[in-house]
Design a protein around this nucleic acid. Structure first.
Lengths: 231, 231
DNA sequence: CCGCCGATTTGCGGAATCGCAAAGAGAGGA
DNA sequence: TCCTCTCTTTGCGATTCCGCAAATCGGCGG
């Protein structure tokens, strides 16, 4: 499939790579369109490919043994996904579901070692990416350990605004459909509590809600909420 | 400094490396002894080196802006540490403190890209290590999102028993000094709650406590606690 | 344009857990 | 051996947050 090279070229991951190498890698990839609600891969399935998101937005979820679901992370355009475990495990640890119409490139898992051997800089880039992701995970652990629910939700919304925000007349729009339940699963609480918190914020003019919609009207005030500890 | 090569040779990280390469790498390293309570590096300090723990046990902690501390992870012999961020950040994101007398090898941070360029397999190994660590972090996030405190503490103690357990007549001894406060900081709760939980377990014959001591008497029962959801 | 279905809001107990406080206990140093 | 310091235990009231329930809302398909 014909791929828009300029999109890939801009990624930090391929920054140091020559044009020929990049071409070679791209010709070995497959492109796939994923409509909203469809899974790119499912938790527990054999990890046959790793992916790069070109367009759209994915939610990576995990389901616990007793059926509870959490959102591990949101995948944005330019992110690699479905690969961290391709190195260690044979199955995907989570499910990646398209929140909107999305397009992803994919490569067979077994090509990964080849990539690294032929492009050591790629290894460094990839490691930086994973390192960042690890840092994010630690941040989340720290937040869940030390902050009350309202601050955690504030941090989550701030992250969404930064990573998936689109400027609008009245503020920053979260640029994909997201439910209260989703936010609850990102912050380790219930949709009820999230709803109460967002309602309170709406009353203070900080955000504006809606069905699967969220608009941040006052980033400043939201940051204050995120940094202010109770009492 | 003279280093016991056999110790290093066994590590998965260096598994695929030739003897000459390994020798070269080891001659470039420095060995350092760290007495209990002393820090290998401090949060926020310039990341000048990355490390490999040979002997002992370290606790990696982070302190939040408002002074609360959490334990990010425990470093066991054979683990690389203080490097994930050397790739992306210029300072250490946490503090590594020796729980017991420890010995670590260190290399200057700027040698990392060299390592990768000359030993691509090392890059793959390192990435697997970070990938595993990321997976652990996600496990912890999942636990903190969906489980009550008692189950989280049970999981934490099980992990400690697996990673730092030494067989004893009456059960599995956690092989380094650990306080209730430590366990609290690993599970996102308070030392009071941990103390109550451990007391209850002691009453049921599952564990045996003591000052900075912990002995798991009934691994089976503890696993049941870890997997049983309330009600 | 109407009806249905999933998303959201909100009230109200109840349970889990925190925070404070005070007492007990073990280990190492003087 | 005694003293001191830190760690640990335990009680009790205060809070946060969950879980259930019921009502409302909004968009999509027919």
């Amino acid at each position: 499939m014909k791929i828009d090279k300029s999109l890939v070229r801009e990624l930090a991951l391929f920054e140091k790579m020559s044009d020929e190498s990049l071409d070679k890698i791209l010709t070995q990839s497959l492109s796939r369109r994923v409509p909203p609600g469809e899974a790119v891969f499912e938790q527990g399935a054999a990890a046959t490919h790793f992916f790069l998101l070109l367009h759209g937005r994915l939610k990576v979820t995990q389901v616990t043994a007793d059926g509870q679901q959490i959102i591990v992370r949101v995948v944005h355009p330019g992110d690699l996904f479905g690969f961290a475990r391709a190195l260690q495990r044979s199955d995907y640890p989570g499910t990646a579901i398209a929140a909107v119409d999305s397009v992803a490139l994919s490569w067979p898992t077994q090509m990964w070692p080849d990539f690294i051997d032929h492009h050591p800089r790629l290894a460094v880039s990839a490691m930086q990416t994973i390192g960042q992701r690890l840092e994010e995970a630690h941040t989340r652990i720290r937040e869940m350990s030390t902050e009350e629910v309202e601050r955690r939700v504030a941090h989550a919304v701030l992250r969404l605004a930064k990573q998936a925000g689109r400027a609008e007349a009245n503020g920053i729009r979260i640029d994909f459909p997201i439910t209260r339940q989703d936010i609850a699963e990102m912050t380790g609480t219930t949709l009820h509590t999230v709803s109460r918190i967002l309602s309170a914020w709406e009353g203070r003019g900080i955000v504006e809600g809606g069905r699967q919609k969220l608009l941040v009207r006052d980033l400043e005030a939201l940051s204050v909420v995120a940094e202010t500890q109770k009492q």
